[in-house]
Computed example of a mutant assay.
Amino acid sequence: MAVCLLLLAGAALLLVNDFGRMQKLNKRLDLAIHGRKDGAAEASKPEGSMLVRAVSSFGMFIARSGLLSRKTLTEMTATLEGAGFRGGRGLGLFVGAKILLFFLLPIVFYLTLKNFMPGALGLCLKLGGGAVAGMLLPEMIATNIRTRHLEQVERGVPDALDMLVICADAGLALEAGIARVAQEISLLNPDLAQELTQTSRELQIGADMRSVMTSLGERTGLEVLKRLATTLIQSLQFGTPLTQALRSLSAELRAEALIRFEEKAGKLPTLMTLPMIVFILPCVFLIVGGPAVINVLAVLNHH
């Protein structure tokens, strides 16, 4: 087992240089798209620790080796893109973490629970449980990150629509308006800004507007962004006023959000019933009936 781990670590370290070249290429593309200032700022950011880079490079080596099917890689990529991880680094880190944890967690389980359930059965349970946990843990973390990412994106869509309406009223084209909204909303909602930035980059390289907007909805899987894509496509196809369509969609989204809040508020009395019975009613019974019980016990002891 130790020899296998050493071989895996050595292969990962050998691939760090390839990962570094990939990072430099991405920086040059960002520099060409956004200009010297943004490229320099991006270049000043740290690339991550050596361990993260090694695990990512090892995962990319496994992904490119053909050991995993194309369908599996597509599903992993979709999950990671939905969680906000773009490019090969996220996929490599995901695959590398699953494989390394598959070998490391059984050892950790065995050393931690060494005195618990000795014997062959206990050893099988520890090693098997560690292997299963190592395979499922990265996917659970990625799914959790994806869920929170999509919640943040959905929460910020009405505000982004209002800002896009302002940009359209100011005379900006749709491509420039999306880029401006992504820039302005980056501090308020970084997750939505990331999705809009990718959409803006796809528009800048000359992709078709319909395909880009459709990709925005399919990439996230959110019904809100699918409706936004449909609204923009219909506005461009039939020539309807863009600002009017965006205002109507923003009003609908805010009304739906208000309805959801009202539904949650209506469920509060039902949700509070069990805590009230468990925590509040016993205290009320003690306060109300406690003195009477004490008096009865005092009378009984007197007699």
Rank of each mutant, 00 (worst) to 15 (best):
A2M: 09
L5G: 10
L6P: 02
A12W: 11
L15E: 14
L15S: 13
N17M: 11
N17L: 14
Q23Y: 10
K24A: 15
L25V: 14
N26Q: 15
R28S: 14
R28T: 13
L31S: 14
L31W: 12
L31D: 10
L31T: 15
I33T: 10
D38Q: 07
A40Q: 11
E42M: 08
E42R: 14
A43C: 09
S44W: 08
M50S: 10
M50H: 05
A54H: 09
A54R: 08
S57Q: 05
I62R: 06
I62L: 15
L68K: 09
T74R: 14
M76W: 11
T77G: 09
T79G: 13
L80T: 03
G82M: 06
G87L: 14
R89P: 00
G90S: 10
L91E: 09
A97P: 01
K98A: 08
L101Y: 08
L105M: 10
L111F: 13
K114S: 13
G119I: 15
L123G: 01
L123N: 02
K126N: 07
G128T: 10
G129K: 11
G130C: 07
G130L: 08
A133H: 08
M135R: 13
L136W: 10
L136H: 06
A142R: 03
I145L: 12
I145M: 07
I145H: 06
E151C: 01
Q152S: 07
V153I: 12
R155H: 04
V157P: 00
P158C: 02
A160H: 02
M163L: 13
V165S: 01
V165A: 05
G171L: 08
L172P: 07
A173T: 15
Q183E: 12
A193H: 03
E195T: 00
R201K: 06
G206Y: 07
R210M: 02
T214V: 03
S215K: 14
E223I: 06
K226S: 10
T230G: 00
L232M: 07
I233K: 00
Q234K: 05
Q237W: 02
T240I: 01
L242T: 08
L246E: 01
S250R: 07
A251S: 10
L253E: 07
A255R: 09
A255M: 06
A257W: 00
E262A: 15
K267Q: 14
P269C: 10
M272Q: 04
T273V: 15
L281Q: 02
C283Q: 06
L286Q: 04
G289C: 04
I294Q: 14
N295V: 02
L297H: 05
A298I: 06
V299P: 00
L300N: 05
